[in-house]
Design a protein around this nucleic acid. Sequence first.
RNA 1: GGGCGAUUAGCUCAGUGGUAGAGCACUUCGUUGACAUCGAAGGGGUCACAAGUUCGAACCUUGUAUCGCCCA
Length: 1049
Amino acid sequence: MEKTFNAAEAESRLYKAWEEAGCFKAGANKSRDESFTIMIPPPNVTGALHVGHAFNNTLQDILIRWHRMRGFDTLWQPGQDHAGIATQMQVEKMLTATQQPSRNELGREKFLEKVWEWKGEYGGTIVEQLKRLGSTCDWSRNAFTMAGAAGDPRTGHENSPNFHDAVIKVFVEMYNKGLIYRGKRLVNWDPHFETAISDLEVENIEVAGHMWHFKYPLADGVTYTYIEKDEDGNVILEEERDYISIATTRPETMLGDGAVAVHPSDERYAPIVGKLCEIPVGPKEHRRQIPIITDDYPDPDFGSGAVKITGAHDFNDNMVAKRGGIPMYRLMDTKGAMRADGAPYAEEASKAQEYARGKAFTENEIDAINLIPDHLRGLDRFEARAKVVEEITADGLAVMTTSDDPRLGPKPKLKKGEEAPEATTVPLVEAKPIMQPFGDRSKVVIEPMFTDQWFVDAEKVVGPALDAVKDGTVKIIPESGEKTYYHWLENIEPWCISRQLWWGHQIPVWYGLDLSAENFKDDENDGQLDLVELGRLLNEGGMLHRGNVMECAASFEDAIEKFLDDNANIPSPLSHATVIEVADKHEAIHQFAESLAGYAVDQDPTKLVYPVWRDPDVLDTWFSSGLWPIGTLGWPADTEEMQRYFPTDVLITGFDILFFWVARMMMMQLAVVDQIPFHTVYLHQLVRDEKGKKMSKTTGNVIDPLEIVDEFGADALRFTNASMAAIGGVLKLSRDRITGYRNFGTKLWNAFSFAEHYEIPYTGDSQRPEATQTLNKWIIGETAKVREEVDAALDSYRFNDAASALYGFVWGKVCDWYLEFSKPILQGDDAAAKAETQATLRWVLDQSLILLHPIMPFITEELWGHADQRAKMLIHADWPTYTAADLVDAEADREMNWVIGLIDTVRSARAQTHVPAGLKVALLVSSLDDKGQEAWDNNHVLIQRLARIESLTAVDEFPKGTVTIPVAGGTFGLPLADIIDVGSEIARLEKTLGKLTKELGGLRGRLKNPKFAESAPEEVVEETRANLAAREEEEGKIKQALARLQELA
RNA sequence: GGGCGAUUAGCUCAGUGGUAGAGCACUUCGUUGACAUCGAAGGGGUCACAAGUUCGAACCUUGUAUCGCCCA
């Protein structure tokens, strides 16, 4: 054998062997009917393996290997998700880097070709990386959330079920059931990528911000007495005001204010509620007036207590605006610049003014209004902010304070001898930390925007998902996850599923011109359109300027049918116009007009077209990954895999995607197939560095799992991951720990090298011998105990307990004691004992390999392979089922523990009395009982060897200067009068005695308390009594020993 | 501000009412025929604090402090 395990060489070889033998395939090594299925949380196709993946997949692989060895019909389903925004970004970067035409230059279709190319080339990276960890996914089933979409060349996911069809089918069905709708809502808008993004993709970061204070003058010459009181109700300020004071961190949004809100209980503003005030920006002659309303949202103690309401650009304001029917004016374009569309400001402002004065409005009318003053149009939002502040201040409408106001933030430090400058009057701009939303990929400030999007009406599908957890059908580990889950689901918001991207499942909805004509009069009443009627329809009827009609269908062909049905009621020949697909509405109007013009000339109705255009948006990636459990198994087809593996068993994923993915999978699976997707959800925390900091490129504390694998081997990383995986625990990855577990692997390796050294035959699968030797009986019992411990731990997802049980067994029991104890027998002449011990040792080592395999697959498979003949590779070896009840021999247990205890105590006494390590010493014994004598007789060779004892002599009384070794049933002694320092030996014993006395006090106190005997369980009382007796015996012996030493001193 | 959680040895963390544990680090000793990626021994804890429940509390309850995370 090599000196150590060569992970770098062996891992790829072993993995290849497994893979080529089909060891990971669904159902491999199946010997029973129960299935066990895990769906991999699909890593992002652009992703590279990070420590979180490494952790997460280690746990999954442990469970999978464990079940596979136990003969379950096991499937670990792999795959990747298409990661709309990330992939699009990656490909765009690549285009720039390689000087290719940009996305917009390429156009949608060509760009998507590039994305598919890119996916084919780089999309498999993470798969290869997962393999290096030893992950035994059924790679032949590798799935992809965009599989089957237009242009899919099927590279890297050759056998993936057609996800596209499944996603589209679900969308159409949910749409038909009224669970999906299109509407205007406030969403997180990324001005860089020009798309809506999910909450998950938003990072809230505290930044140094400012809070401006402005005066909104009251309209119509209104004034009021503003009274400020302190806590006791004393008036501290009373003045006549013709304005209301507003604080804001985003002055540019003032342009879109629809109201000013105050708390209904706020007496200061009660006199002016219902009045109008003026937004102090824009050309003076067109300043907009907005109402002062009441709402519970404003906090009277915060700022001035009055809040400006910009419903289209702030989530809180949006709620207030909704409640109060306040118009929500959109101020920015998709790039986050101030709008430049629409009519001149004067015109737009006067429209808004009418609405503020009470005119009825629709959402779309409001959205069409551009309230940006002409000179600010087209400016970036931050430039616009500066301008707005500048103009208001110049106008004298900023709230002023003195320059020494502490709210303005820290002052520049004065140089020595420098005088503080005279306080001047300055605008009140508070320096204030504010939470600002940033796009996690774009790094730009996210703009809440009121836009048209597609939504899942989550409230309608949340019920079953909630019930499943509440009634225990689905269990979330740790339990705290359930609380979080309830909290979120019970307050669920509509789920925005549209994204303004190209890479993704395009929404299966087509729009057409609204040709319905309610007031149309058919002059001849013949159901036919003549030219006069046609002209009237188009121009007077305003057909071309009306809204759109839309149809949702799984394919364009299906959509055609629906549009034809829609059009059936309009006059012929328009009702039979051929439905064609065009790029957008503009194109549609153009084509439609052209075809009508042609008809006017040749009267050929077959050339009439009805152009429709598809919604350009794509679905949120989470919508497709929400279908992961069924989509990967081939749904909607009624596949054998669906029958066998669905519902799946366990989902192992990060806490952070409980809402975004787990809850949505619950909702969607229940909504679509009316079944739970899995019965257990195991949530874990983020993997951090050893100090508990998040790993990030900026901090420079990122640990690359592949580097760890290179340096320590995959097994060491896996064992570390398992050891960290306490339920709900914080995950701190440290190299020291990894080193420790690498060393553990070496320890195991050396146990085999021990067997080789003693030339123990290793012909094939070992059988458990019927042991006669106490030593062998004992270790067989210990093996049974650890098997039960490991199974119990894995059963309850306590990976750390499984790891530490195995670590303690292999190192602390097998290597530290069993192998040492076996030496004299292996070297001895008793052929029968030797053969039995060889067989036991082989068996114990093999069992260790089996039990360790799920956690450390490589080194164990390698060692397993050292035997000449094996029925199966270790990966498919049979997992043991023996129990401690069957195999633990109480007598052997007691005897070996007695031996171990004696050796420990002798060693300890030797070390503390500085007996040279190599020196063999004599041992004396007095008053040994029968059991003790028997134990000694059976094991004296072991004891003498490991405790370095020369001889044993029975004495009636220990000579002076004997170091006492108390054991159960007797007392041993080391006659060390010549060697020991009496003083320090006395000190040592007194220390031991001190501890003992304290312990005795506790035990006696408890037993003396009558209530203890009454209330405590019988066995606890019994245990305490026995314990007390043993401790008292020990105390006696130590006191005697002390007495002897004191004579000497 | 709301919700969830944490606080145990120098460090990282286990420990769901019955004698406080592990790994690492540290100190001392050791080239004893598996293993120095090792062996032997050792030191080290008012279980954050306070009150309560209990025969008994690291564990249950309440409060306090500090620190995380999520949501505003």
